[in-house]
Amino acid sequence: MNARDLMTTDVKTVHEDDEISDVLTRLARADFNGFPVVDDDERVVGIVTQHDLVHIFQPSDRTLWIPVGFPPFLETLEYAIDLSWDELDTELDLLKHSNKPVRTVMTEDVVTVDPDTDFDRILDLLADDERDINRLPVVDERGGLLGIVARQDVLRAVRDERRAAEASAE
């Protein structure tokens, strides 16, 4: 079994120049959590996931410390107001990033496989402890997208193979 046997060929992609707001909208309607990113020649140039998109809205330290003095006290009290998840703050982040191209947030160092990559190599890549890879774009020699192998495809193949082995043993 190899990538060609496992891959899904009807792959939804986004273009590297697509606006982040459009990609967010498409991802919200999708039943998966990432897109391969392609250039004008349909070559894979990156991958964008929910994590990449949510990350741009993750607050850094946005706690506002407001000193308030109460006479006749000489010391001030400090009140911390957490602006991190304030609706306005999130909307401002969305406005700030929404018109940027997806290439500004995509992962450029995307791991790909060719159609003849064997099952064991695919397992090694998807089970890599250092990288959290959920999907492997299958590309031709020029980097053109042919399909995608997701973890779910591998699990389904293992399940089907076990069921077939059990059925033939009966």
Rank of each mutant, 00 (worst) to 15 (best):
M1F: 13
N2K: 15
M7F: 12
T8I: 15
D10M: 12
K12L: 15
K12Y: 14
K12N: 13
T13K: 13
V14S: 07
H15K: 09
H15I: 06
D18F: 09
E19T: 12
E19R: 15
S21G: 07
R26S: 12
R29I: 05
A30Q: 07
A30K: 06
D31W: 03
F32H: 08
G34P: 04
G34L: 03
D41H: 14
V48C: 03
V48S: 07
Q50I: 07
D52R: 03
H55F: 09
I56P: 00
F57Y: 09
Q58C: 10
P59Q: 00
D61A: 08
I66H: 01
G69A: 13
T76R: 12
A80W: 00
D82N: 09
S84H: 01
W85M: 08
L94W: 09
K96T: 08
N99I: 00
R103E: 13
T104L: 05
T104Q: 07
M106P: 00
V111S: 07
T112L: 02
T112A: 05
P115C: 01
L123P: 00
D124C: 08
L126S: 03
A127Q: 12
D129E: 15
D132M: 11
R135C: 13
R135N: 13
P137I: 04
V138M: 01
V139D: 02
D140Q: 05
D140N: 11
G144F: 01
G144M: 08
I148E: 12
I148M: 13
D153H: 08
D153A: 06
E161Q: 15
R162Q: 12
A167Y: 12
